[in-house]
Design a protein around this nucleic acid. Structure first.
Lengths: 125, 125
DNA sequence: AATACATATACGGATTTCCGTATATGTGTC
DNA sequence: GACACATATACGGAAATCCGTATATGTATT
């Protein structure tokens, strides 16, 4: 893990400079979420979601937890003050943005559907 | 001017995702600065500086003012709350970072040298 | 108008990023 | 261990980004 590189603001901003990654962060803002929920909610192919999640993880913005077959992602508590500051501002923006709000709503619906078809998966909220 | 595109956070972050542009913003944080000062301080070829300044201007982060042969750039007052928030955090980070501090110091020295060799140019600060 | 200087843009090439598809890995079930 | 499912990675190819060099534009000076 190269902490030096990750501490660079340019690297942080590069990570945030992609719409798909911002949409993922928006969904994760509600709490821990598994990949299939993210994939279904964003209507994006699964490898694309995994790739962007890996990027967010490399940047230290999210953490992952395995539970059986499923991987659950969540926002990470980042130590760097700039990162925390920027993410706080981003979170505020997401709460106001219409598209982001819509996708968070859609996530809740999708979550219910998945729970019906895939038993054994732990529900979060 | 496509306000729609510039309002997208992803566009903001893409703009900030380049080390040279961050170095430019750092120098401009001290006040209005002309291109030749920026070029000399960063020891970067002039077209590169101009290109990145153009990018920052497109994103609405800086404004330009012509004075004779010289162009002076400065931070712009941006209306978007997210932009203001992120830039405030960035400014704080820059004040603490060693490299950025060094370059701001170097800028003051370079500024004096230029003033001696190029008459007619208005001094700032 | 010819020249000099400051800055901006055009252009081609190298590098990076992003994507879709295919495939590999990891985990539970039979 | 064979299979099914969830997720991760590998592998080109398309598009975007960045750079250095060359050149264009704009402004004073003579």
């Amino acid at each position: 893990m190269k902490t030096t590189e990750n501490a660079e603001p340019a690297f942080l901003f590069k990570t945030l400079a992609d719409p798909t990654r911002l949409r993922l962060l928006n969904l994760l803002a509600c709490g821990e979420t598994c990949v299939c929920e993210l994939t279904d909610t964003l209507r994006v192919v699964q490898p694309k979601v995994s790739r962007h999640l890996a990027h967010l993880k490399r940047a230290g913005l999210v953490e992952a937890r395995r539970e059986g077959k499923w991987m659950h992602y969540r926002w990470a508590k980042h130590g760097d003050p700039l990162v925390r500051h920027v993410l706080a501002g981003l979170r505020e923006w997401m709460e106001k943005d219409d598209q982001m709000n819509g996708e968070r709503r859609r996530r809740r619906k999708v979550c219910c559907e998945i729970s019906r078809t895939k038993p054994g998966r732990t529900l979060n909220q």
